[in-house]
Design a protein around this nucleic acid. Structure first.
Lengths: 109, 109
DNA sequence: TGCACTATTATACATTGCAAGGTACTGTGG
DNA sequence: CCACAGTACCTTGCAATGTATAATAGTGCA
């Protein structure tokens, strides 16, 4: 999958998934990778950045399947940011789809 | 509009628009900007890169509204690349939209 | 003990959109 | 005649972010 498509959209995906419930990094990697492949080296720096910017708080929970999991919980401004990104994504993807439809419909043979 | 969303998608947009007919840079900037704002400093280097990679051939046409226009015409491999990117975009945006729908539907209040 | 799986962290790199700056042509109004 | 707006192109350096790669470490099983 085109690497560049993912730029910026990953932030959206992470925020959207944490709307449902608190998540830990490894879980996010695998859930998102069901839709399109992402690397661990992508998620962890992103989570740290979003936490630093105040969109997440974190807490550790012991796991019996490995080292303790760091859970990420959305803050209020994290929720606002999620809503904002969702709205922007919808407008953006609509615009792109319109261009594609117009492009294909009027395509010269 | 979120800058990061555009990464890679601009290439798609430029290719899609040239499926219809040959275009020149200034025209592409304004046509795409109807959907979401882009800068001239983005388009010209992009066109140059795509041309260098063999997706476009170019020719100049005199204009009575200013300097000559450099038109970009898709090559065969340019068309193939366009089809490929369109397909990838569709799968990608579908995946993102599914995550968003699931995220919002199951959102905790 | 060794291995597979889970889980986190850090560093260096490549790609690409943008701001800011520049050149140059045409037509219009003062 | 000259200033200006609009058209049209180009270049440079910067910022953002996904990735590869690697290191670290806990658990449970053969």
């Amino acid at each position: 999958m085109n690497v560049q498509f993912k730029k910026g959209v990953l932030t959206l995906c992470v925020l959207v998934l944490t709307l449902q419930k608190d998540r830990y990094g490894y879980e996010l990697v695998h859930t998102i990778s069901e839709k399109f492949l992402i690397a661990e080296g992508t998620i962890y720096p992103l989570l740290r950045r979003l936490t630093k910017e105040g969109y997440f708080t974190t807490y550790l929970v012991e796991s019996n399947e490995g080292p303790p999991r760091k859970y990420y919980q959305l803050t209020d401004i994290g929720q606002e940011y999620a809503d904002e990104l969702i709205q922007e994504w919808k407008e953006f993807s609509l615009g792109v789809n319109q261009l594609i439809e117009e492009g294909i419909l009027n395509e010269q043979k």
